[in-house]
Amino acid sequence: MDGDSRIPILRMGRLLLVTIQVDMHDRMAVALQEDLTGQIVRTGATGVLIDISALDLVDSFIGRMLADIAAMARVLDAATVVVGMRPAVAITLVELGLSLEGVQTALNVERGMALLPSVATEPDADEGEDEDDGPVSEADAAPAR
């Protein structure tokens, strides 16, 4: 596996979609966390949908990554739904002691989409990354350190 490969993030309106299709090593999981939070700020996304149906394992590290993403997204005013967890993974996760508190889950992509508030909301027509009143300027308006 390429040590620097990253998980792609797709944008659809105000949603960010992530399908994890490889067995992630820990650095990849951390990179995804950073990429996603960056994208939320850059695009003003209000929802994040993470499809883990291809994962045959969620251990404590990946579980923490999912919980952290949900927490970070919440702080950035975006909701996160994790969809498609396999039954064997769910059973193992609970036995491991991980409850994924604070992470909203759904059985599949369709149900997950329905949980996200702004699926139907088209982004503002003139919204762009270089727009004056877009999320970029919001980030600029953050208190200077």
């Binding site: 045959d56 394992l57 064997a88 059973i91 193992t92 491991l96």
Partner: peptide
């Protein structure tokens, strides 16, 4: 079985 595989692999990952 699949559940047993998953439990073992998860334990080994930890």
């Amino acid at each position: 079985r699949l559940v047993d595989q998953t439990k073992l692999v998860t334990a080994v990952s930890e």
